[in-house]
């Protein structure tokens, strides 16, 4: 096991794999992350955001289920924030969330800053991955079914905002 800040990633040097909380982790840079998002948006159009949210939600929720076992609600949210930062996605503030939703904020969003650095500002928010991450964190912390959590980015650094802000609704 190799320490990754707070978390311990299981590295198999023979197989060249790394896993944390049952999820395979791979290193990739902002150029690839943004290029892949651009390719997916080009191919899927308006559906791209939903597909990225759903993909993020599926992997993050499964991982948080493993990593937060036995933790209280506040600790689960704190674990999600720590995980987000240690994986390199930015600084995620989930303290504005409760069982009925609320507001989450990201400073230094990897996706938004990466997008601006490569392509410049854009009209639509870019942090669809983060929307899925936040939905998973809230659902896991409060035991809410995935389909009842809706997260939308309402301000994005890639659109000119100072921070990336997410409205979180529980249906």
């Amino acid at each position: 096991m190799a320490p990754m800040g707070t978390f311990e990633v299981a590295q198999d040097l023979e197989a060249s794999t790394a896993t944390l909380g049952g999820q395979s982790l791979v290193f990739h840079c902002h150029f690839y992350n943004c290029a892949l998002q651009a390719a997916v948006e080009e191919a899927l159009g308006d559906d791209a955001a939903d597909i990225q949210r759903a993909a993020a939600h599926s992997v993050v929720r499964a991982q948080l289920l493993a990593l937060t076992k036995g933790q209280a609600t506040d600790a689960r949210l704190a674990t999600a924030s720590k995980l987000f930062a240690e994986l390199g996605f930015g600084t995620l503030d989930l303290t504005g969330l409760g069982p009925r939703g609320g507001r989450a904020t990201v400073k230094a969003s990897h996706y938004a800053m990466g997008w601006v650095a490569i392509y410049g500002e854009r009209e639509a928010p870019t942090c669809n991955f983060v929307e899925g991450f936040v939905a998973a964190a809230l659902g896991e912390a409060f035991g809410i079914a995935s389909e009842r959590v809706r997260v939308r980015e309402v301000g994005c650094f890639a659109c000119g905002a100072e921070t990336c802000d997410f409205d979180v609704e529980v249906l």
């Binding site: 395979s24 892949l36 597909i51 993909a55 992997v59 991982q63 390199g88 930015g90 990897h110």
Partner: peptide
């Protein structure tokens, strides 16, 4: 401290393989 991984002149993430897989 910013939640970023500057390395090799890039910003890295330690990302979810199955996120990439599912969107691709």
């Amino acid at each position: 401290e910013e939640g970023l991984i500057p390395a090799f002149g890039l910003y890295l993430t330690r990302h979810y393989a199955d996120y990439y897989n599912r969107i691709s």
